[in-house]
């Protein structure tokens, strides 16, 4: 029996565009399980990223609830939501969004400094370890603008996990990367998941989706498909691609 880490009920998100309401999410119910590598897929404009932002507390839902640890994150105070962001959740953006005037090391360490349970020295040590793990320790003093996309994204992953979040959110983390960097980033995420890290990722890349242990398919703001998979095994990548491809076809992707 899997343990639910995050549960959304009746999730709605609407925007006002040119005076007209646009409904992106229309009463979505979803449970995310601990230890899973969950991937959200769907056509453009289906509400993938909106779902991710709403579930991670980066955006407030118009209606519905997102339960985490017995609390509805939509109702959390600004202070508690901030604590959730640096303590329990990690977030990786498509465009990396590293702070442009902080070095790679500082980009990783700064969220670590927010943790009250760890000293600055411990944070620095942890950041050094992550730089090593991500293979970017040799450029730790570089500014993001001096690094490649892949290096930046690896730094963003390190930043997202420095506080050992319970759940790692990733919004198309390979969307801005070339094939080589994409593989490197996916390998890193897969490795993290193998180590027990729960991941919720949005992607439109089938190769990335194949790394998942569960795929959710969204259409018109609702989940219409839910595919459970074995844990990723590189040796069986071909057959996994076929399986996922067939399922996505059935979803009319």
């Amino acid at each position: 029996m899997k343990k639910t880490i995050l549960s959304a009920k009746g999730l709605c998100k609407s925007f006002v565009h040119n005076g007209e309401q646009v409904h992106i999410l229309t009463g979505m119910d979803v449970d995310i399980y601990e230890g899973d590598f969950t991937v959200i897929m769907g056509a453009s404009g289906s509400g993938k990223s909106t779902t991710l932002y709403a579930l991670s507390g980066m955006d407030r839902a118009t209606a519905g609830s997102v339960m985490y640890n017995g609390s509805d994150i939509a109702k959390l105070s600004e202070k508690k939501l901030s604590a959730l962001r640096h303590g329990d959740f990690g977030f990786i953006f498509q465009q990396m969004h590293l702070v442009s005037n902080l070095s790679l090391f500082e980009n990783i360490a700064v969220p670590g400094y927010l943790s009250k349970n760890r000293s600055a020295a411990d944070t620095d040590k942890k950041a050094e370890e992550l730089l090593e793990k991500m293979g970017i320790s040799h450029i730790k003093t570089h500014l993001p603008s001096q690094c490649s996309g892949g290096e930046q994204q690896r730094c963003a992953i390190a930043r997202a996990i420095i506080n050992e979040p319970a759940l790692l959110f990733a919004d198309e983390p390979t969307g801005a990367l070339n094939r080589k960097n994409t593989t490197e980033v996916l390998d890193l995420l897969t490795e993290l998941n193998k180590g027990g890290q729960s991941i919720l990722m949005v992607t439109h890349d089938m190769r990335a989706a194949c790394r998942a242990s569960r795929i959710l398919y969204i259409e018109d703001g609702k989940i219409i498909g839910d595919l459970e998979l074995e844990k990723y095994d590189p040796a069986r990548e071909k057959s996994r691609e076929t399986q996922v491809g067939a399922w996505l076809s059935s979803m009319e992707w």
Partner: peptide, 15 residues
């Protein structure tokens, strides 16, 4: 604002 958004995403409070 983008940098500010990133810091907010990291867990910095608005105040």
């Amino acid at each position: 604002r983008t940098d500010i958004g990133i810091f907010k995403a990291m867990g910095f409070t608005a105040s």
